[in-house]
Measured scan of single mutants.
Amino acid sequence: VQTVGQWLESIGLPQYENHLMANGFDNVQFMGSNVMEDQDLLEIGILNSGHRQRILQAIQLL
């Protein structure tokens, strides 16, 4: 089972590990259960829309 940090590294966005972990997104399986939306990522400080889309697309593959 991948950690959130390993998963972010695999999609090329390791800089957001602290954003996700500090806001309770600390379990890759949980994130894959379709609980995260674009607005959630924006609210936790991921401002780059391309990065948000990449995260959301990768979540669909979990």
Rank of each mutant, 00 (worst) to 15 (best):
G45K: 02
G45C: 01
L47K: 13
F30T: 15
L61D: 14
N34Q: 13
M31Y: 08
R52S: 02
Q15Y: 03
L56R: 07
V4D: 00
R52F: 02
E9K: 12
Q6I: 05
I11C: 04
W7G: 02
I44W: 11
S10D: 09
E43C: 08
V28G: 06
G32C: 15
L62F: 11
G50P: 05
E9D: 12
Y16Q: 03
E9C: 07
A58V: 00
Q53K: 14
G45Y: 03
S49F: 09
Q6H: 08
R54A: 07
Q15D: 04
A58R: 04
G12H: 02
Q15C: 04
N34D: 09
Q29M: 12
S10L: 08
L61F: 10
E43G: 10
E9G: 08
D26P: 07
D38E: 14
A22C: 08
S10G: 09
M31W: 08
A22D: 12
H51L: 01
R52C: 02
L41I: 00
L8Q: 00
W7F: 14
R52V: 00
N48R: 04
P14C: 04
L56P: 00
M31Q: 06
I44L: 11
S49H: 14
Q15A: 03
N27G: 07
S49Q: 11
L20D: 00
I44Y: 07
V1R: 10
E9A: 13
W7I: 06
T3P: 05
L47R: 12
V35K: 14
G50Q: 03
E9Y: 07
E37R: 14
V4I: 15
I55H: 02
A58S: 11
V4Q: 01
G24L: 05
M36P: 13
S10F: 06
M31G: 07
L13Q: 01
Q6A: 13
T3C: 04
V4E: 00
D38Y: 03
F25H: 08
L62P: 05
Q60W: 06
E43K: 15
W7D: 00
S49K: 14
E37M: 09
L42P: 02
V4P: 03
G45T: 03
A22R: 12
G45S: 03
L62S: 06
Q2N: 14
A58F: 01
G45M: 05
S49T: 11
Q2G: 10
I46A: 00
V28I: 13
L41W: 01
I59S: 08
L20E: 00
E37N: 14
N27V: 11
R54F: 03
M31H: 06
Q53G: 09
Q57S: 12
L41K: 01
N34C: 15
R52M: 00
Y16P: 00
V35I: 15
Q53V: 09
S10V: 06
N23C: 11
L47E: 15
I44Q: 03
V1D: 10
S49C: 11
Q29A: 13
I46V: 10
L47V: 14
D26T: 14
T3A: 05
M21C: 12
I44F: 09
S33I: 10
Q53A: 13
L8M: 02
Q29N: 13
I55D: 02
E9F: 07
N34M: 12
M21G: 05
E17H: 06
Q60M: 08
A58D: 04
F25R: 05
N27Y: 06
F30V: 15
L42W: 08
M21D: 01
G12A: 04
V28C: 07
Q39M: 09
L13S: 02
N48T: 05
I46Q: 02
A58M: 05
P14D: 05
I46T: 01
V4F: 05
N34T: 15
G5H: 09
F30K: 15
A58Y: 04
L42S: 08
Q29C: 10
D26E: 11
A58C: 07
S49M: 11
I46M: 01
L13W: 04
Q53T: 13
N48I: 05
D40V: 09
Q15K: 03
R52D: 01
L56D: 00
L47W: 08
D38W: 00
E37C: 13
G24E: 03
N23K: 10
V4M: 08
S10Y: 06
D40P: 02
H19D: 10
I46K: 00
G45P: 01
I11A: 02
N27M: 13
T3E: 07
N23P: 04
V4R: 01
V28A: 06
Q2Y: 12
G32K: 15
G24W: 04
D38M: 03
R52I: 00
I55W: 02
G12E: 05
W7E: 01
L61G: 12
E37A: 11
G5L: 12
R54K: 13
G5S: 09
D40W: 07
E37W: 07
V1F: 11
N27E: 10
Q6N: 10
S33M: 11
G12S: 04
L61K: 14
H51P: 00
L8W: 02
E43Q: 13
Q29I: 10
H51R: 02
L13K: 03
Q57C: 08
L56N: 04
G12V: 01
L47Y: 11
I46D: 00
N27Q: 11
D40L: 07
